[in-house]
Amino acid sequence: MENSGSIKSMNQTRGVVKLVDLTKSPDGWGNAQGKEVGKLLENFIQRHPEIDIFKVSFAGIQRTDASFSRESVVEIASRFRTRHAIAIVDLDDDDLIENLDVAADKKEQPLFSWQDDSWKLLGQSPTKGNTDLLHYILTVAETTASTAASALDLKLTNASTKLKQLWESGYIMRREEMAPSGGIEFIYYRIK
């Protein structure tokens, strides 16, 4: 319970960006429009350094292509990786999902699309050795290396290495907190 209290620290305020507000149209296609929209999203993120996870809503978007998806969202997620993250919401159209998935895969930038508490990973899956740990974090919302090591029966150094790999690869976020022992510890958490 103490830990869950610390989750709601200042840097976890969520920002929601409606993609259709940036495209000014239900359709998005091509590199040029993708870059324009990506620049607007990038500016929004830069104006809100206090926000760690930005929700990009696809509500109102009807048609896209993969190049637009790459330049408008995936590229920006990649650029801010480890500092800010993008979670996708309101995306339930198979065509739009596929276009974002192909772009995320090619760019090697994973993205999570959320509907309530269920998630879909777009782009490449993590390595086999890191998959269980990622699923664990998606379930518990956040963890430390020692908690994850106990839960998944891993050595502490192993859990710590895997968490760092997942963070660096863009699957999870992390923040620093003061450990009960007085030192600094990393809290790793899902991108939602």
Partner: peptide, 17 residues
């Protein structure tokens, strides 16, 4: 029709670029 939007978008973008 929806899928063709992606096809046209990508191919026309390739031509332009």
């Amino acid at each position: 029709g929806k899928a063709s939007f992606t096809i046209f978008g990508e191919l026309i973008d390739n031509v332009i670029r």
